[in-house]
Design a protein around this nucleic acid. Sequence first.
DNA 1: GGGGGAAGGACCA
DNA 2: TTCCTGGTCCTTCCCCC
Length: 663
Amino acid sequence: MEATSDGDRPWQSYHTVYTNAKAGDRPNAFSYYRYRIVFLLVDVSSSFFVRRFCGMEGVDKENVQKIIYELSKGSKYFENEKRKEVIIKQKMDNLRTHHAKLTEKEISHFQMIADNRILELEASRDLSKIWLHIDMDAFYAAVETLENPSLKGKPLAVGSMSMICTASYEARKYGVRAAMPGFIACKLCPDLIFVPINFEKYTYYSELTRNVFSNYDPDFMATSLDEAYLDISDTCRQRGIGCEEVAAELRNTIFQETGLTCSVGVAPNRMLAKVCSDINKPNGQFILPNDYNAVVTFISSLPIRKVGGIGKVTEQILRDVLGINTCADMLQKRAVLYALFHQCSTDFFLSVGLGLGGTDTPQPKMRKSISNERTFSATNDESILFQKLADIAETLSKDMQKECLLGRTLTLKLKTASFEVRTRATSLQKFVNSKEDILIYASKLLRAELPISLRLIGLRMSHFHDDKHSPLDPMQKTLTSFLTIGDVAPIADKSTGFDTGDVQLIPNTGSDVSSFSYESCDILETNQLSVPDYVAVSHGNQAESLNECPKTQNKYESSEKTSDVSNLLDRKRVASGSRIIEPYWAEGYICSACGIEVPASFPEERREHLDFHLAEVLQKEEESRSLLRSFPHRESGRKKHKSSRSHGKCIPIDSFFVKDESL
DNA sequence: GGGGGAAGGACCA
DNA sequence: TTCCTGGTCCTTCCCCC
């Protein structure tokens, strides 16, 4: 990446996501011709030699790279890319050092382990399934052209001057592609026509395609608006026709129903099917027979970058450190892979080398997180930043409510003016999806980062509520356990989520901390107020039940114009007595806790001041918790463990650089 | 030692 | 004129039990 190392051609080493991408580069395209020769006999319909990958043929790649470099150099984005590149290079150096230190004995040891693992993986090979991957050609651009035929044959980009979502094949000839900034695309293709994104349109056409998919596989897996996997084994068997015929028929039906073209790949598993659908793009198909030798030959010369899950960084590491370029190289270097990388990474690499991929129909995966982010002109104006935050919280809230999701972990993502990305997360004490709830905690996270100049703010919610297994209020167990210990008589649990009966919060006088305070503090946390000021007592039918507390709180919060955390403190102080002395503005401007005078005309200062006292309160709460950690009768509030996180697509990039001490 | 929260980063369209 | 995304998932690190 460093310009000086490249003499008068510094752009040659500048690879962004769009100068070094699956669709754009074909450094090993020649190897495809080799395996194609092998397959001419079995795939006579595919005119491989006149078809290309992704419509990027004929692009003057060097010129594209040069233009991108010239437009980028010196920018903050460019500087940040250089910074990241240095980090990757350092990590690669570590890996090289590690590699160099391997002894013959160690390598033969790992060779044996890898060989055994290959036998296990090979035993799992299933050639009985026929998987079809379908990919709509330049989907968004094609839809726009369909609705406005005057765009036909013209270079078209869907997106904006800041970012392009999709480019038509005419535009791709100039080097324009998805995820490229519009202003760079304009330089590459001055006649480029921009069309704004319209997801409603694309969703409509996507539904049309999915109606067709369901005729071939009712359980098809849609991975995006324009891509899907179909298991056509049954269709082929029931109709007594070959997969090639099914693929052709499917493409034809799609075209008749939508007017759009697509590309199809057929193979014994999903990983291979996806690679195959990329071969004869656009408007083509490629069939890889369900035959062991065919798979092995195909995979032997397949560049690793063509495999889903291997991106720019992984490719660079494998290529530059270990000399791995093709999937076959993965098998050849199996011992070193085992020596340097973690098991799950090596398993993935070996599976790729063997041409193994998903063959079963997986259960529909539960979404794990939902997020929303906005890029804008960099600013340090706090009022603008908080307004952006409120907008994002609103969008996220709407998206969550649309999908009936309630989340518990909120992550704030920030991109500074210099493109440094930061994330700050917090776990809430109840599951939420309202704008008000999200904004309260997002504001607190953002406030902790001020002052800061930002160009992006994002919010992500994760740890969703699972109807079957978790109560709406994660602290319910603790509450229940609280009610069964100490001096308070147990109260019937109505088993209605977090309705635990007639309990009321009353101020904790501090007389019996060891019995109550810790748990009562948890109760309060259900209201997002971690202040150990209350105990819970049975209060007969007249009392306000605990499950009403969050609602009451929410209602109150919703009516607020501001989401400021400090205001919560104010409200809580008003709403309760307090063991820990909480501040209030005596005579309207004197802090009751410390005597400092802050007039109402300094709202920001007052807020920060109350935040300071909030921190004090939280610290006291923590002390209270510490005291109770030695309390022998308290039940653990910790949840049961989740299953291993090392499932699914597993390419731990950072783990590439760390190996256990056994080496 | 293991679980889980927090932070960072890879990948993809 | 405009000037490098948005979404998701997975990993490691580290604290706490």
